[in-house]
């Protein structure tokens, strides 16, 4: 009977390069499909709000600036988002995508997590509306 079955493997490991990725000194490129922070392209959005309806975590708000002109601001709550990509699936106009780069999202302050997407002038129009930091609205 052997005394230890893992000895060989352990000694092999000793003389091998460790399996460790030394993040943050080196960043390995993230996979193409990685589901990171949400991105919104206002050009094609029709304001149908299916993404808002389907979001299981109430992470998306579609704020109207001018409904007739199809000008909206998408207020996205990174802290609520569960990165499930249902909104991307639901969007018929392919306005939404999940970035595969933006996954280092940690912050010291929750304010940083509320992101407004849209044309600059539209966001300015909404400035008086402060971002809500409360719990997600009740369904």
């Amino acid at each position: 009977m052997r005394i230890s079955t893992i000895l060989g493997m352990a000694l092999q490991s000793l003389f091998r390069v460790p399996a460790t990725r030394s993040y943050p000194q080196e960043r390995t490129p993230s996979p193409e499909r990685l589901r990171g922070q949400l991105r919104w392209n206002p050009e094609k959005c029709t304001g149908c709000a299916v993404c808002v309806k389907d979001c299981p975590a109430v992470a998306i708000e579609l704020l109207e600036v001018d409904k007739a002109a199809k000008r909206f601001v998408l207020r996205y709550h990174t802290d609520r988002c569960i990165f499930c990509s249902q909104c991307v699936q639901s969007c018929r106009f392919k306005c939404l995508s999940l970035s595969n780069e933006a996954w280092e999202l940690a912050a010291l302050d929750k304010q940083a997590f509320t992101v407004d997407y849209g044309r600059d002038e539209d966001i300015h129009a909404l400035v008086e509306k402060p971002a809500s930091t409360d719990d997600p609205p009740r369904l």
Binding site: P31, R33, L34, S85, Q86, Q89, L98, N100
Partner: peptide, 14 residues
């Protein structure tokens, strides 16, 4: 992560 984009909650089903 390659297939679905998340390591744990794959959300591959719909």
């Amino acid at each position: 992560e390659q297939i679905s984009g998340n390591r744990v909650n794959h959300s591959i089903n719909t």
